[in-house]
Simulated assay, not measured.
Amino acid sequence: MSAAAHAETLVVLVASSVDMPMADIRDGKLHGGVHLDLGQALARKLHRELVVQVLPRKRLEGALAAGRADILCTYQPEWLEGKHAWTQPFFPQSDLLLTALSAARPHTVADVRGQPIGTVLGFAYPELERALGAGFVRSDVASSVANLQKFRLGRIRHIVVDKAIYDYQARIGMGLNAHPPLVVMHQLTRCAVSTRSKIPLSEIDGAITQLVREGAIQKILSNYQ
């Protein structure tokens, strides 16, 4: 499905490896979560019908570049290859480093240099790459929840996880024997906009400005806290 063929839609991409609270993906379709709520809010502001495409992480850039979708949200330019337009920063995201109680508590990211860190396949971690260099030893799994389960089973001593996912999984009862988390990064992420989209970047930015002003972004997040 292309954005060009559906001029009155907003086609949003979501990675198939994303977990709750960001995305409730079942049978290849998005049924709930932050990405659905955010997509619906943007579509309402743009007076368009929301269409969601769930794709593997490594196919997102191609779909966006080819104009098969309009936007991909909660990303940064350094996380995504290709030439895309970018909205204003607006969506808060934090990455946490979790360390098992069986290991020494790190006081800085540099303290885990050379040790395997649980990561998600296809995801970029530029802050860890800059801090650890060649000492950033990735141990990839398919999703953040798989990463947390691997950690809980004692199969890895360090993992990096999105704070929203960590908080949500803790809330629903996933017990983790871990030291207090170490914040790897905190920033405002953006939406990548296809250069072939029929929706002007200025319109999408205008919709985002309205949502931020109305407190809608924080309300979406608070629904899962």
Rank of each mutant, 00 (worst) to 15 (best):
M1Y: 01
A3G: 04
A4R: 08
H6V: 00
E8L: 07
T9I: 00
V11T: 15
V12M: 14
V12R: 08
L13M: 05
V18G: 04
P21L: 01
I25N: 03
R26H: 01
D27M: 10
G28A: 11
K29M: 11
L30I: 02
H31Q: 08
H31F: 05
H31N: 09
L36Q: 14
L36H: 13
L38P: 05
L38A: 02
L42C: 12
A43E: 06
H47N: 14
E49P: 08
L50E: 05
V54L: 07
P56I: 08
P56F: 06
R57E: 14
R57L: 11
R59Q: 03
L60S: 05
E61D: 12
A66H: 10
G67Y: 00
C73Y: 05
Q76I: 01
P77M: 08
E78F: 05
W79E: 04
L80M: 14
G82W: 05
H84T: 03
H84V: 02
H84Y: 10
H84K: 10
A85R: 01
W86R: 06
F90C: 06
S102W: 11
S102R: 15
P106E: 07
H107R: 12
H107C: 06
V109G: 14
A110T: 13
V112W: 01
T119N: 11
V120L: 02
L121P: 08
F123A: 04
A124F: 01
P126K: 05
P126H: 04
L128W: 03
R130V: 13
R130P: 09
L132C: 00
G135D: 06
R138G: 14
S139L: 07
D140K: 06
V141R: 10
V145N: 12
N147S: 14
Q149T: 15
K150L: 12
I156T: 15
I156V: 15
R157A: 13
H158Y: 12
H158I: 06
V160A: 09
K163N: 11
Y168M: 02
Y168Q: 04
Y168I: 03
R171L: 10
R171I: 06
R171D: 03
G175S: 14
G175K: 15
N177P: 04
M185I: 12
H186I: 03
R190W: 05
R190T: 05
K198N: 13
K198C: 07
P200M: 03
S202E: 15
S202F: 10
I204V: 15
G206R: 09
G206N: 10
G206K: 10
L211A: 14
E214V: 01
I217E: 05
I217H: 03
Q218W: 07
I220C: 11
S222W: 08
N223S: 15
Y224C: 13
Q225N: 13
